[in-house]
Design a protein around this nucleic acid. Structure first.
Length: 104
DNA sequence: CTTGTGACGCATC
DNA sequence: AGATGCGCCACAA
């Protein structure tokens, strides 16, 4: 199925985000080759249930989109990796990861 | 098949 | 800056 392929591509993209950096849902979707599937990135992260560095994926502008306890958890984990925050959002100017074309 | 939901993103107020 | 609306898309009921 094509959905498996999308899942795999997205998981890969997420795994490419190095420690101390973050990427947005939209970025991940685009890097995976499916720019319009930002919402599905979420599904993939949930489905992976901890097998992925889910904390490195944030909303546009570096906003933490996960509500409640998990949101605070995510922020904590990121700060733990050395990510700096500016108010409620990640300092994207410094921590936003830039994906590269593969097989170069 | 139709509807509701969601860790989105962007325009708009 | 926070709230709302709309477009986008898969998935469950």
């Amino acid at each position: 199925m094509a959905s498996d392929e999308r899942d795999a591509a997205m998981r890969k993209a997420v795994l490419q985000i190095p420690r101390g950096k973050v990427a947005t849902y939209g970025q991940v979707a685009a890097a995976a080759g499916y720019p319009l599937y930002r919402r599905q990135v979420v599904q993939v992260l949930r489905k992976a249930g901890g097998a992925l560095p889910w904390q490195r994926v944030v909303g546009s502008g570096g906003a933490i989109k996960l509500p409640g306890e998990f949101g605070r958890e995510q922020r904590f984990m990121l700060e733990m990796e050395g990510v700096r925050f500016r108010g409620k959002r990640v300092d994207m100017a410094v921590h936003q990861h830039t994906f590269r074309k593969r097989a170069r």
